[in-house]
């Protein structure tokens, strides 16, 4: 293989960072420009070009994920509701090790949660809203009924703090706002959102050590910091606050719970919530600073 052909092949591999639709319309043009801009003797892409292609590909993916005709706030609300729902149900569906059909503590709750998450992903707001309302009322029964059984469903977890109930109400309020919104209907989101509960459930079921020694919390903190870093990057790429809004919705219940139980926490918890809050605030600042920039 000639040096030029090898270089072109490597550039085409790097172009996989871009979404397929972008590669189909601009891929050959980018390769043409890359080949013109490269040292004719070079068989490998320069580091600077490789990094710019990966960053450019990510930015193109972030831009490509924006639905046409849907305002940024509605898109951010949709993303936020989806993030809150998938992470809440990932953590609030109790899984025990053992035969899979015995492993679910709350089969009705689990089934409802899956239907709700699918409805949010598909943008079926009017199906998701009543399901979310049932889940919110059920998990907030302590507020209304002192926890006693007055014919309430009692299919979900029982909470006694506002911070634990709040995610369900955030989903309800977000969906209610999206339901009364006029304009173009919400798009179907990526099915990969379902990987969040799926991976957590698999970890709970199949990796016994996952629940021990704070490993779960450490892993979650790492993923959250990484994800919020990506939110900042995506915000700079698309230059609006949709991802920042989604991240803020995700953070609100946790911060509320942290505030309610402030005296129980040590220095690590303060540092953890401080970092998450800082990252979300940074994404809003990034949105504000880049909003009108070209």
């Amino acid at each position: 293989m000639s040096t030029e052909a090898a270089l072109e092949r490597r550039y085409r591999s790097l172009l996989r960072a871009y979404p397929k639709i972008y590669r189909d319309s601009h891929g050959d043009e980018l390769v043409s420009t890359l080949m013109e801009a490269s040292d004719p003797q070079a068989g490998r892409p320069a580091l600077r070009e490789a990094f710019a292609l990966i960053a450019g590909g990510f930015a193109a993916r972030a831009r490509n994920a924006r639905p046409e005709g849907v305002p940024w706030w509605a898109d951010g609300l949709h993303l936020g509701v989806l993030a809150v729902a998938t992470t809440t149900f990932a953590l609030e569906i109790s899984i025990r090790s053992g035969p899979i059909w015995d492993a679910l503590d709350r089969p009705v709750w689990t089934l409802g949660a899956i239907v709700l998450m699918v409805a949010i992903i598909r943008g079926w707001v009017w199906l998701a809203l009543p399901l979310a309302l049932i889940a919110a009322l059920d998990t907030s029964r302590w507020l209304f009924l002192d926890g006693s059984d007055h014919g309430v469903l009692k299919v979900g977890p029982f909470y006694t703090s506002v911070g634990q109930m709040l995610p369900y109400w955030i989903v309800v309020i977000g969906l209610a706002v999206l339901a009364v919104r006029t304009g173009k209907r919400l798009p179907t989101r990526s099915w990969s959102w379902l990987l969040i509960p799926a991976l957590v459930w698999v970890a709970e079921y199949a990796v016994p050590i996952y629940g021990f020694l704070g490993l779960k919390h450490l892993f979650r903190a790492g993923v959250e910091v990484l994800a919020l870093g990506v939110v900042i990057w995506a915000t700079v790429a698309i230059r609006d606050a949709r991802w920042a809004l989604a991240a803020a919705l995700y953070l609100i219940p946790g911060l509320t719970y942290f505030g309610e139980t402030l005296l129980l926490h040590g220095r690590n918890a303060f540092a953890y919530w401080g970092v998450l809050t800082l990252l979300v605030l940074t994404s809003f600042v990034a949105a504000g600073r880049t909003r009108q920039r070209v």
């Binding site: 601009h26 980018l30 420009t33 890359l34 801009a37 600077r48 070009e49 990094f51 710019a52 292609l53 990966i54 960053a55 450019g56 590909g57 930015a59 193109a60 831009r63 790429a237 230059r239 070209v294």
Partner: peptide, 11 residues
């Protein structure tokens, strides 16, 4: 860089 150029052109 080429990736930077085309990102800017898109915007």
């Amino acid at each position: 860089a080429v990736g930077t150029l085309y990102g800017a052109l898109d915007r």
